[in-house]
Structure formats: C-alpha cells, structure tokens
Design a protein around this nucleic acid. Sequence first.
RNA 1: CGGGAUAUUGCGCAGCUUGGUAGCGCGCUUGCUUUGGGAGCAAGAGGUCAUGGGUUCAAACCCCAUUGUCCCGACCA
Length: 376
Amino acid sequence: MNDKKVKSITSKSENLTQWYTDVCTKAELMDYASAKGFIVYQPDGYALWEEIMHYLDKRFHDLGVRNVYMPTLIPMSLLNKEKEHIQGFAPECAVVTMGGSKTLAEPMVVRPTSETLFCDYFKDIVHSYNDLPIKDNQWCSVVRWEKTTRPFLRGAEFLWQEGHTLHETEAEAREFALSILRVYNDLGRDMLAIPFVMGQKPASEKFAGAVDTYTIEGLMPDGQALQCGTTHYLGTGFPEHFGIKFLGKDNKIAYPHYTSWGVSTRLLGALIMIHGDDNGLVLPPKIAPTQVVIVPIRGDTEPKVIEACKKVEASLNKLNIRVKLDLSNKTPGWKFAQYEMKGVPLRIEIGPKDLEKNQCVLTRRFDSAKVFLPLD
RNA sequence: CGGGAUAUUGCGCAGCUUGGUAGCGCGCUUGCUUUGGGAGCAAGAGGUCAUGGGUUCAAACCCCAUUGUCCCGACCA
C-alpha cells in the first residue's frame, strides 16, 4: 500500500524540479492557465500570499507607508525616459496591440515594474520639502515575457508589492531602503521559517537604473541561492529624468532621493522548495491556511466520534487556530495522505479506540512525531 | 532563436505499422458494503481524435501545410 503513496509524487532527492512541479499542482496551490507561463492561483496557494500581505501591510504601515494603485499599462514614451531602465527591461516587455480597426495613439506596454508610472505621478505632487517624504506601495501583478517559466519561481505574470519612496536626503533614503530590507528578513524569520541572508548586489546584477541594490537571498536544496526580495537606492536619476523637483529649506531647488523595493510570489516557491519532503508540502504553522486538521475514524457509524471531533474543533476555534474537521466519506488513509500532501502542520485523529481511553492522537507534519493526549 | 519529441474525455495513456462501430487506467455521479495509512462491488455520465487541405466508397490512422505544448541548448537584474 505504501507503494501507491510513493508513486504519487517524484522523490525530492531524485529530481528536484519534477518534485517541485508535482507538489505545486497536487497540493492544489496552482494550476496551469491556457496562456504559456501564466498560472491560476488556487485557494490554498493564494491563502499563503494573503498571509504574507497581512504581515507586510502591518509592517509597512508602521513605517508610514500607504497603499495606492497605478495603471496596468505604461505608454512607451514614459518607459523610454530613463535609458538604463528601458535597456534593462525592453527584452521582456509585453507590448499591447489592438485587434480589428482600432489603433493606439502610441505603443503601450504592460507594466514589468512601475517606477516610470510613480515618477510621472510624483512630479505633479512634489513641490517643497514639506511634501516629503512620500512613501507609497502597491499590491499588483506585473508581466515579464520570460522564455523559461516555472510556477511561482519565474512566471510571465506574478503578484508582488512594489514600494516607492522619495526623501529629502540621501542618508534618509538609504536608511529607509535598509529598514525595508530588515522587514523582509523578519518576514522570513516570523512567517516563512526561512533564514535569509541580507546583502548587496554587485554592479552586474543591480536593478536597471539603481545606484545600489540590496537583497535577501535564500539557500535552496540544490545549493543555489534564490533572490527573494530586493530594495533599491535609486539616487536622483529618475527624478532628474522625470522632472521631480522640490524647494528646500535653504530656498534652493533640489531633486529628491528615490527608493523602490519589492517581494513577489516567488517567496512561495522558496517556501515550497525549502520545507517540502517526499510526502508533499510542509508548511510552517504561522503561514499555513489550515493549521490543524481533525480526522475522525469510523465517523459514519460512531456518532460519539463525531461529537468528540466537534468539541475539539470548537475549542481550537476559540484559540483562533485555523482548524478543519474533515467529515467527508473518504477513508482515513486517504485523508492522512491528502493533508500531508497539503502540508497541514498538525493532524488530530479521533477514533473509537481513543474514546475508550479518553484520548486523541496528534501527528506533527514535519517530523511525523506522534503524541497521545487526553481529550480534555 | 537552434536541435529533438509530442497533440486522442478533467488527468495519464493505448490504438496508427496493415484505413472499416472511440478504447483503457485514474478521477467524477448513483447505490450498497466499508473506514486506525491513498477501500471493494455494481450501474452510469463524459470525445469536433489540435487546425486546414488532400488521397479514398470509407481517415484518429496515409500525404501536405499550419498551430500549440514539452524537453535540451541559447537568453534571462
């Protein structure tokens, strides 16, 4: 019988790439969409992203950041204003064309990132030092026409947040960029159970248009480092090209110092690869959409078992633990395998034998450790 | 973009050599029996065989063209 379980997904040590794809689809995190490189985020996959959004929104708010939303499309002329920037992104830009007899006044591009849109907006609202700092963030998706795609790790479209801030001085901007980097590092520690390494990129790997690029890097099971988040100090280059100026306290005109920063759904790819095993996904409790699953044994014929399960469910609900009681008519063995595949951190089994002893069985996902606890 | 492979039900595949009623496994629906590691039996539902053309009495199958997808390169902050 164990043969069936082993057959369902490829072994992680045997073929990491195949294993990764198997887990993404069989744990029902995503499905492939009809356009190449695009995916459907299924409820359990999107729920992981929602937990990340909740955490970061709170942390960003504490730093004085507010959420905004920019358009999906960028006029080509706007994108062309910063030379280094357009040279970096042009090869992967998705250019919009209209069907039929309709035509566009000028070529449009689906945003690969939104620096140009933010700067075009900032130039109209920044006039004096009293308008600074500006700290905006947006949650959105961006499109980059990658030739080779993988779920979450590299997609033609991915979800992310991009923050854009303007500051009076270089020192303030640099310090802010680094404070965001520390927030990203905390996200790894508090939510994802991933020990990131904070660092600075060499000139050859900097963001197109940045003075300095900082990243958090995660170590993957294949020995490669995966860039999981970036913050950039962009200097005054963008403001100069877009005409963002302010009158300082000294009554002189100056350009503000610019930062941008982001993390994407690539984080989910790192989460899956780092923690998963041959039985499927393994999720840290803080981010798991379902933290505890209760599996009744012989529930159909033993009303007392259901009753006991519901009692446990209610008490866990009171503790704000995300709990699921599975009363479906699947067999217990199927449920065990299913919730292991989905990475649920803790399983509680309750059956007739347990009721006789007034106990239940707890099994931990990441190391299969079993504990018997009194029902009370 | 270069090389290779492939396209048949939601998924995975057989059938093509040698043209003649559209098949299998999984999944799904219903019923009964089951339930402590992916249950069993029975009855069902589900297909423009990628697209266009050609050959033929007859094409999933043979021929030509087109398109999509996958793998390996190359490319990729």
